[in-house]
Amino acid sequence: MSEEKKESLFSKKNRKLITDPLNKINPVTIQVLGICSALAVTVQMDNALIMAIAVTAVTTLGNVVISLMRNIIPSRIRIIVELVVVAFLVICVDQILKAYVYDVSKSLSVFVGLIITNCIIMGRLEAFALGNKPWESALDGIGNGFGYGLVLIVVAFFKEFFGSGALTIPGLGKLVLVPESFFDFGYMHNGLMLLPPSSLFIVAIYIWVQKSRNPELIGE
């Protein structure tokens, strides 16, 4: 492959496909897609990381497959075709998770299966993969997967750090970050952070901060 060819693969337009979903068109906070899993799997950092990787993989591969088939799918049955492709990929992901990280797969429970109905994936397939070439679609999938992962990691960090004073990172185990001496001064874990509603507050504050820094996003 020549140098020129490589240059065009990562042209400015293509790089935007990856960087834009991280902030300006973040799938979770701005487009409000894929909220269900973003809020539910964030009690521990390792769950959030693995979920982010799984969603990125499914979005990217799904985008590529649909983009390759975009000219032969009849538009009337495209939703069913997309669902089948996504369901197939999710079954693969589920089997891989069960084989290699069984504990995480257990604690994610139904949310692995729910990747099928994650609106980010269907949204990207509908809005992007059906009208673009495989390479751009792959980049778009990676970008949106990372945008989703970024929110997951931020939420999981606050929830786990304030809720149990530790961060669980795959491969390293549970890292206790709050020293014992803090407790002598009356420091307490915030139990609310471990309960479901706190992720909603954290995402709301995330949106607040993001929109205050980018006032052009306030458009409703």
Partner: peptide, 16 residues
């Protein structure tokens, strides 16, 4: 607050 209008506020309400 303007940045919180719409979706942001809906999140907080759902949390409450």
């Amino acid at each position: 607050p303007a940045p919180l209008k719409g979706v942001g506020m809906a999140f907080i309400l759902t949390g409450l």
